[in-house]
Simulated scan of single mutants.
Amino acid sequence: MLTRKQHELLRFIQVRLEESGVSPSFEEMKDALDLKSKSGVHRLISALEERGFIRRLPNRARALEVLRQPDDVTNKAPAPVAPREAPVALRPAPRAPEPANDVIEIPLHGRIAAGVPIEAIEGQSMLPVPAALLGSGDHYALEVSGDSMIEAGILDGDLALVKRTDTARDGEIVVALIRGEEATLKYLRRDGPKVRLDPANAAYEAQIYGAEEVQVQGKLAGILRRYH
């Protein structure tokens, strides 16, 4: 069962697709649902996507497809269909979804610094990010400090886009909180009762801890780089 806002958004997307063949922009969805920011739209879309009601078409920031309607809609009797008129001329095919520069805002917490847990880094600002760079789920951003991940293409000053989660598979790059005090961006490896945090720089050694000493606070979803 969908929430009222999820139901309203699903219906709005469906109507716009039927009318124009193009899904609405994040700004249009925000205004239609009377939301304060586009991040709320992103959360609703992610929830609908995870539950199988819509999907994002690849390589297009503004392309959404409605896969199904809620049971309380699909179980109703279909609306009467008007008699078909004789065709007069071929109608043009619906326009293909056009790329758009939809962005969402995610918290930018600051630099990953030794001795400072993620919870202690207050959100200093909001970072606008192209929606196409983020999948489903809740995200935040951190500024990378140091060169321990340069061989993975992650440089000092890069902005790490992190999906908030407390689980990750071996080999994934995660934000790990060590002993509740120090946050670091490293490859995660498990070795029996131990957890190994591997850098991507031959000049650094792996860090090994007991499993109870390491808490995953997110996994890397992408990198943004500013050129000055």
Rank of each mutant, 00 (worst) to 15 (best):
V73W: 12
E172F: 10
R4F: 01
L224F: 10
K30C: 05
V175E: 02
E151D: 15
R4N: 14
R169P: 06
L108K: 13
I54G: 01
G135D: 13
E212I: 05
L161S: 03
H109F: 02
M149I: 08
L57G: 03
A131W: 00
M1G: 13
K76C: 08
E119V: 01
S136K: 14
L224A: 05
P83W: 15
S20I: 10
M1T: 05
E213I: 05
A96H: 10
S23L: 10
D138F: 10
D34F: 11
E98K: 05
E172V: 14
R179N: 13
Y209G: 07
A183M: 00
V73N: 08
E19Y: 10
I13V: 15
V81P: 08
I154T: 06
E151N: 14
L177F: 01
F26S: 02
S25E: 07
G135Y: 13
A132H: 13
L188M: 00
D138E: 09
A61L: 00
L197S: 11
K163R: 14
I106P: 07
L134T: 04
P107H: 15
E143Y: 04
L177A: 04
A114D: 08
R164S: 09
L90A: 15
L220N: 00
V66L: 09
A132M: 05
Y140Q: 06
K36Q: 11
A183L: 05
V195Y: 03
R225F: 08
I54W: 04
G171M: 06
L188E: 00
A176K: 02
R51I: 02
H139T: 13
S145W: 13
A168L: 01
V22C: 07
I178T: 03
A32P: 00
A160Q: 05
G180F: 04
P83T: 12
R179L: 11
I208Q: 05
G180C: 12
A141T: 00
G137A: 05
E18C: 11
I45G: 00
E119D: 14
A114K: 06
Q69A: 12
R179W: 06
R55C: 06
N101Y: 02
M29V: 03
G192Q: 12
V214C: 04
Y204D: 05
E28R: 07
L10T: 03
R55W: 04
A206F: 11
V41L: 07
R95N: 08
E119P: 00
R179M: 10
D147V: 00
D71M: 06
D71C: 03
R190Y: 07
H109S: 09
L155R: 14
R11I: 12
E18K: 12
H109T: 04
S136Y: 08
G123R: 13
A211H: 13
P58R: 04
R60L: 10
V22P: 01
